[in-house]
């Protein structure tokens, strides 16, 4: 399998604090890869660095074989890498439809836009019902769907998902994870950051465990689910 994303020895500092201490990992085309870890482990920092919102201090990010470490954030999405950010960050004062339109900001084809929009409305019927409603008035689960729909509007090849289950009721959590599996089946590679390690490992192919800025373990998701240390630290068993 060819890697779509390769990260090599990536370090990020916030002032004097080192948030990422030279991490390396890769994501193969078509995979679901989970990045699990506790609060403050550096998961969000990793995703923000990939998306170009934070600059890497050292290290290399390669996307489809091309180095993208220094590429500014607004150019990343048109290369095929989209992110569903932590806390959803939908545009609260815009309607659901306008949010989806923002997702397609880098796409200039109106026929393609209509087609993608229909697909997303089929996948998330609730968004269609509420298309003219302000995004800020949606429930947390609906906002999560909107954030996912918005990211999918850009036709990503890889989608970075940051804590999609955060703050959602168990029913919504299951629904969101089903959707992630569906999106992956449609051929989109997924890099999934989660605190809900059990859920993440249950849908992932492979996983990396991040602890205070370093990757301490990696392997097949199924193996990690049965790993005693992981069970103790992350699965609450």
């Amino acid at each position: 399998m060819e890697p779509i994303l390769e990260v090599n020895d990536l370090s990020v500092y916030y002032g004097v604090i080192q948030a990422l201490k030279g991490i390396s990992f890769k994501v193969n085309k078509g995979e679901v890869v989970a990045l699990i870890g506790a609060n403050g482990a550096g998961k969000t920092t990793t995703l923000h660095t990939l998306s170009g919102l934070i600059k890497a201090d050292t290290g290399l990010i390669k996307y489809k074989g091309e180095e993208i470490t220094k590429i500014p954030g607004h150019k990343i999405v048109s290369m095929g890498m989209a992110q569903v950010p932590e806390g959803r960050r939908v545009f609260a004062e815009m309607t659901v439809f306008q949010n989806l339109k923002m997702g397609a900001y880098t796409r200039d084809n109106s026929a393609e836009f209509q087609e993608t929009l229909e697909k997303i409305y089929t996948r998330f019927p609730r968004l269609k019902e509420r298309s003219s409603q302000l995004a800020g008035t949606l429930s947390g689960g609906e906002q999560q769907m909107l954030a996912m729909g918005r990211a999918l509007m850009s036709h990503p090849e890889i989608i970075l998902m940051d804590e999609p289950s955060m703050g959602l009721s168990p029913i919504f959590v299951n629904e969101i994870f089903n959707i992630i599996e569906d999106v992956n089946k449609d051929g989109v590679t997924v890099l999934l950051v989660e605190q809900n390690a059990k859920k993440a490992l249950s849908i992932a192919n492979r996983a990396y465990v991040l602890e205070t800025g370093s990757i301490v373990k990696e392997g097949n998701a199924a193996d990690l689910l049965n790993d005693e240390a992981i069970k103790k630290a992350y699965l609450g068993e």
Binding site: V77, F91, E93, M94, T106
Partner: peptide, 20 residues
């Protein structure tokens, strides 16, 4: 519309591909 997006959330606007 990009202006409205930037007004609300510069980070999320960047993720949409908007040059802030």
């Amino acid at each position: 519309q990009a202006m409205l997006a930037v007004a609300e959330d510069k980070g999320a606007a960047t993720l949409m591909g908007i040059n802030v």
